[in-house]
């Protein structure tokens, strides 16, 4: 199935996420939400877990959402989405609902997914509700001031894993959340970044065309938390893919496929950049370039290579 987008036509429409929201300058999250809602045609209901996106788009009495929207607690956005789907079913049975199909999209950050929300997410996928779960992964609790989460990578400095004499940043690797969802046998799981926008929109369209629980893991570079200049947001998302730190893939009915830039790198391995390229532009990793911490870069490189090789095998390229 292929999808094409006519941006020149789409750009004339009124946006479904309105400007005037108070996310930081240079934040990648509104771009992600804008592109996903642009790809979602037809009636759409959005639920958002607590996180940067929720607190910055709905500061009372203002709302930036041009679609029906509901907020819930930090941990239960997947349960809320399940409830919306169940309510629509019940209303349909009574003949009180006029739409044939509604896109139900749940947005949550890495805190609301990796750590706090995983129980609700796991349950909703197991029950097989028809919804799309979008994880915007900025790799720490950015909204409360950069605390480590299950999504923070090895060696990253956060306020609760500060780099210093005692520890060199976070001591553990990032949790492979998309693999955990794949293990639930969800019908569609994919990774994306806002920089590879066509890939993100195509995956959204594809996900919404499938019935059942779908999961989209989107990398969301954060200039405040990752410590880089705000104009570099998309550049860093591209570097994450070029270094294979964050490969772009999709999983559908037992099959793995690499997409967009990652497919190009798989076919031409010379294009794969060393992990330093991704690390050196971010302040949260600057301590890793001191002689005593160099071994962490090596460890990260080995980990990235291991995950990448494994992915190539799953995608049938090696």
């Amino acid at each position: 199935m292929s999808f094409t987008f006519n941006i020149k036509e789409l750009a004339k429409q009124p946006p479904k996420l309105l400007p005037g929201h108070r996310l930081c300058a240079g934040c990648s999250v509104p771009t992600i939400v804008k592109l996903i809602l642009l790809a979602a045609e037809g009636p759409t209901i959005v639920a958002t877990a607590t996180g940067c996106l929720e607190v910055a788009t709905t500061i009372f009495p203002y709302t930036s959402w041009n679609v029906p929207w509901i907020h819930n607690a930090f941990e239960n956005v997947a349960a809320t989405a399940s409830g919306i789907e169940a309510a629509i079913k019940a209303m349909k049975r009574r003949g009180a609902f006029k739409y044939e199909r509604v896109n139900i999209i749940a947005f949550a950050g890495d805190g609301g997914t990796y750590d706090i929300g995983i129980q609700a997410l796991s349950g909703a996928i197991e029950r097989g509700h028809d919804f799309l779960y979008v994880l915007y992964d900025n790799e720490a609790y950015m909204n409360t001031g950069i605390q480590r989460s299950g999504g923070t990578p090895l060696g990253a400095a956060t306020t609760t894993s500060p780099a210093g004499k005692v520890i060199p940043g976070k001591m553990q690797h990032k949790k492979p959340i998309a693999d955990i969802v794949v293990a639930h046998r969800a019908p569609y799981v994919a990774t994306a970044t806002p920089a590879h926008w066509a890939d993100l929109m195509r995956k959204t369209k594809k996900a919404l065309s499938i019935r059942g629980p779908k999961f989209l893991h989107v990398l969301a570079p954060c200039c405040r938390g990752w410590r880089f200049d705000m104009h570099l947001t998309m550049e860093i998302a591209k570097l994450a893919v070029d270094t294979c730190y964050f490969p772009l893939w999709e999983y559908e009915k037992g099959e793995w496929r690499l997409t967009d830039r990652s497919l190009v790198i798989a076919k031409n391995p010379k294009l794969k950049k060393p992990i330093e390229e991704f690390l050196k532009v971010q302040g949260r990793f600057k301590h890793l370039f001191k002689p005593e911490n160099r071994h962490i870069i090596k460890e990260l490189q080995e980990y990235v290579d291991m995950v990448w090789e494994d992915l190539l095998k799953r995608a049938g390229i090696k």
Binding site: P19, G20, H21, I59, T63
Partner: peptide, 8 residues
Amino acid sequence: PFKLSTEF
């Protein structure tokens, strides 16, 4: 929330 953020 009852006002659009475009006012801000």
